Computed example of a mutant assay.
Amino acid sequence: MRPNRILMIAALGAMAALAGCTTSSEQIFTSSYVSVKDAGYQLPKIPIEKVERKYHRQVVAYRTDEKPGTIIVDTKEKFLYFVMPEGRAMRYGIGVGREGFEWQGSARIAMKREWPTWTPPSEMIKRQPELAKWRTGQPGGLSNPLGARALYLFNKGGDTGYRLHGTPEWNSIGKATSSGCIRLMNQDIIDLYERAENGAKVIVK
Rank of each mutant, 00 (worst) to 15 (best):
R2K: 15
R2M: 15
P3E: 12
L7Y: 14
M8F: 15
M8V: 14
A10L: 13
G13P: 10
M15E: 15
A17L: 15
A17W: 14
G20N: 03
G20I: 03
C21Q: 15
C21L: 15
T22S: 12
E26F: 08
E26S: 10
T30P: 06
V34Y: 10
V36W: 07
A39R: 14
G40F: 07
P44V: 05
I46Q: 06
K50F: 14
K54V: 12
K54Q: 15
Y55L: 01
Y55G: 04
H56A: 02
R57A: 11
V60L: 01
A61H: 15
Y62V: 11
R63S: 13
R63L: 13
T64G: 01
T64D: 00
E66C: 14
K67G: 12
I71P: 06
I71N: 05
I71K: 07
I71V: 11
D74R: 03
T75L: 04
E77K: 10
K78T: 09
K78Q: 10
V83T: 07
V83K: 03
M84A: 11
E86F: 05
G87P: 08
R88G: 02
A89G: 05
M90A: 10
M90F: 10
R91Y: 07
G93F: 05
E99W: 03
E99M: 08
F101P: 06
Q104A: 10
S106G: 11
A107K: 05
A107E: 02
R108C: 07
R108F: 02
A110E: 03
A110D: 02
K112E: 00
E114P: 14
M124G: 08
I125Q: 05
I125S: 05
K126C: 04
R127P: 08
Q128R: 12
A132L: 12
A132P: 08
K133W: 13
K133F: 13
K133R: 12
K133Y: 12
T136W: 15
F154G: 08
N155W: 00
N155R: 05
G157I: 00
G158P: 07
D159S: 07
D159L: 02
D159Y: 06
G161F: 09
Y162N: 05
R163P: 12
G166D: 07
G166S: 09
T167L: 09
T167V: 07
W170G: 05
N171R: 12
S172N: 06
I173T: 06
G174C: 03
S178Q: 05
S178H: 02
G180K: 01
R183Q: 10
L184D: 02
M185H: 09
Q187E: 09
D191R: 09
L192W: 04
R195Q: 10
R195K: 13
A196D: 00
E197P: 03
E197T: 00
G199W: 00
G199T: 02
A200Y: 01
K201C: 06
I203W: 03
V204L: 02
